[in-house]
Design a protein around this nucleic acid. Structure first.
Lengths: 302, 302
DNA sequence: ATCATGGATCAGATAAACTGATCCTTGCCG
DNA sequence: CGGCAAGGATCAGTTTATCTGATCCATGAT
């Protein structure tokens, strides 16, 4: 059997709860003639009588008494799930790669929540996966390569330049240094933030360094872990100035070639769907993150 | 929150189960444009995206995955209850007073079930209650008084005459008899089938019996119990010829004034709603019960 | 490059749903 | 006992939801 006519079910359920058509009509914003007709339609469909028509209102028959709780519960569950979905749909869903999230975004998100208490953020800390940024799952994301061609319906907002330079602990420097020239790194343990080792390759190519094998060294799933390994003195990592500020300020990491920085992936960008790019919540986040980024860039320069 | 648009819920649920609009359109007997529009309507209503649109079909988003089981279960419950109600609504609902039911109708109902295996009967053994025959709860009933004015929408079919005469056990007769004249009953224990004692009053009036007090004796809630008490030898009951045939044939009851019978309430009638009086199931029952009644009347005469 | 498939959209058509009026029945009240 | 209020029943006419059929687009397979 197919579902009975759904609007008739709703009318019956409301009439049963109100014990009459007048209350049901008010609740459903229709006339009682409309409710009466829906109930009759449902009775014809089922081939049973659902109400006894009494002078002062309706009384459920056995069939009606059996049907009502099933409908009331079904509708209640549908409404409550729809409410939850609707409320959570109001969240701003953001995806951010692990190191940027842990080291740069999360530390400052509390300020966003304070500035915008009405905007709830659902942050996913993860890489995008094979298909890239999923605009049906997320409102906003972060991308490391502003210059790569994107789908036409994705907008981007440049935020931060990303400069990298080798970084190691003072102890590592003392033990294996000094590193006066990049070629001094030959034979030393390199720490990589990904399997392709692009972090080191780019820097070595940029400064024409010879004698250093970018294939050697230890690999980690993300920069955060590689940085921690460097702080422990196990090797030298290709550190990002923005993401390693805490260690650089604390002195737990030093950059031997501080004036030899290069960009690996261009600017960090905020990306999102074109059709929601002007959404008020998205606008609020864009304005806020731009301001925060400008501050961080200024701090880097001084 | 009000219920979301119900037809859109149904369209979404079907599309999710089929993982696409094409299958959902076939199931719902609409075009895939219609399904597409419903899903969009629901997404707008909830403010979330429910499907990722992929080249070879749809994939649920997190919101969609949350919503689908709630809807599938809700609809499944509604459909299964509607089916049960529809099937049971197909039953022929009959109400019969207790003694007629136990002693006359039930013993022969198996033959109806054999003759009409496709017609399911739901028999309620009870009196009608204060408001009389309830045409919204029952398709058919039995009434003892064919001549009383009935609502215009109730039809009736006369079945049996009801003749009554005093009946007692042989032992009671031997101990307190013989009863040659009705006045011989004076001072003997009368057994009544109802509080008003109309059973005896009618007979005594009919035959101008004096000296017998109809207010005396023991009262029972129905004739069946009164008859059992008579069989036990506790008194003399106003027995119905049709309903006491078993005891009369077995000799556990005798009728001292067998040729002095009277009608108390007219003919036993089958009653039902005018608008369903020609329903095929009702017609089948009418034909069958008429035939059975004619047989019983013939048996009484011979 | 072409074709098949599935989703997206929309103008126009169709059918569902509704309104507003009227009628009927019942119970209450003066 | 008559009048009134309240609630259910019905329906012609109106409005709105829903649908169709056509077209377009993107993707993957051949």
């Amino acid at each position: 059997m197919r579902l009975p006519p759904l609007n008739s079910l709703r009318a019956f359920e409301a009439a049963a709860r109100h014990r009459g058509y007048v209350g049901a009509a008010e609740e459903l914003h229709v006339t009682r003639g409309a409710v009466s007709r829906h109930v009759k339609l449902l009775e014809d469909h089922l081939g049973v009588t659902l109400f006894k028509r009494l002078p002062k209102g309706l009384e459920l028959t056995d069939h009606g008494r059996r049907f009502l709780p099933v409908l009331t519960e079904a509708f209640a569950r549908i409404v409550s799930e729809a409410q939850r979905i609707s409320r959570s749909g109001a969240d701003l869903r953001i995806i951010c790669p692990p190191t940027f999230s842990i080291r740069w975004l999360i530390p400052k998100l509390d300020r966003f929540r304070i500035d915008h208490p009405d905007i709830h953020i659902r942050l996913t800390t993860d890489f995008y996966g094979a298909t890239g940024f999923d605009a049906s799952e997320y409102d906003l994301g972060f991308a490391m390569d502003n210059r790569r061609k994107r789908p036409a319906d994705i907008r981007s907002l440049p935020l931060l330049p990303t400069s990298v330079s080798p970084a190691c602990s003072p102890r590592f420097l003392g033990e294996y240094g000094p590193f006066d020239e990049p070629s001094d790194l030959a034979g030393k343990t390199l720490l990589h933030e990904n399997a392709g080792h692009e972090d080191w390759k780019a820097w070595l190519t940029r400064f024409n360094v010879e004698g250093v094998d970018p294939e050697s060294g230890n690999t980690f799933p993300n920069l955060d872990m590689a940085v921690k390994a460097a702080v422990m003195g196990t090797g030298i990592v290709m550190g990002d100035l923005m993401l390693c500020q805490e260690e650089l300020r604390a002195g737990t990491l030093v950059m031997p070639f501080e004036d030899m920085k290069c960009e690996t992936d261009g600017w960090l960008c905020l990306i999102g769907r074109e059709d929601r790019w002007s959404d008020p919540k998205v606008e609020a986040f864009k304005a806020w993150i731009s301001e925060e980024s400008a501050k961080d860039v200024a701090d880097l320069v001084s």
